[in-house]
């Protein structure tokens, strides 16, 4: 009889453990999926932005933060994993869709895409130097010098 109870308890522990494991795995996945975050300098007054606000800034549709101060977006190079993930998260836009969007702006003389940099480290360096800028970097690069305003 004790053996049966023990088996039941062990089974319970197993199932709890496996649920916990499953949770951890899924948590890991969701953390892994939230790699890229939109950041500003920690000296900036901006604390949080919506997906749409961030998208509009990067697509050149707005040039000001919601508080009225001007903003300059810093993009990452075409083909970089961070860039592809950023636009997919933000608006379900593939690299080709982002390219086509800018082609519409460029070939009507309405503007040019934001300045882009090769790496997240470079983006962070520029962000810290200028509190009017906004960029996106890998979560692992976040420290006290920057503030996450959106985790898309």
């Amino acid at each position: 009889m004790w053996a049966a109870v023990t088996r039941t308890i062990v089974r319970q522990i197993y199932s709890i453990a496996s649920v916990a494991l499953a949770c951890t795995v899924s948590l890991n996945i969701s953390v892994a999926r939230a790699d890229v975050v939109a950041v500003v300098s920690s000296k900036s007054q901006i604390t949080a932005l919506s997906k749409n606000q961030v998208l509009d800034i990067f697509l050149g549709k707005r040039t000001r933060f919601p508080d009225g101060s001007s903003v300059i977006p810093i993009d990452q190079a075409e083909g970089s994993a961070a860039r592809d993930e950023f636009y997919t998260r933000l608006a379900d836009m593939s690299p080709a869709q982002v390219k086509a969007f800018w082609a519409r702006i460029i070939f009507t003389g309405r503007g040019q895409p934001p300045k882009s940099v090769a790496t997240g480290v470079e983006a962070k360096r520029l962000l810290i130097a200028d509190p009017t800028t906004i960029g996106y970097i890998d979560q692992s690069l976040v420290d006290s010098s920057v503030r996450v305003v959106l985790a898309p």
Binding site: A77, A103, F107, Q112, K115, S116
Partner: peptide, 15 residues
């Protein structure tokens, strides 16, 4: 000359 750079004075692009 990358169209992606907002700072260049002259940029060439085409389609």
């Amino acid at each position: 000359v990358e169209p992606g750079s907002g700072s260049s004075v002259l940029s060439f692009s085409g389609f």
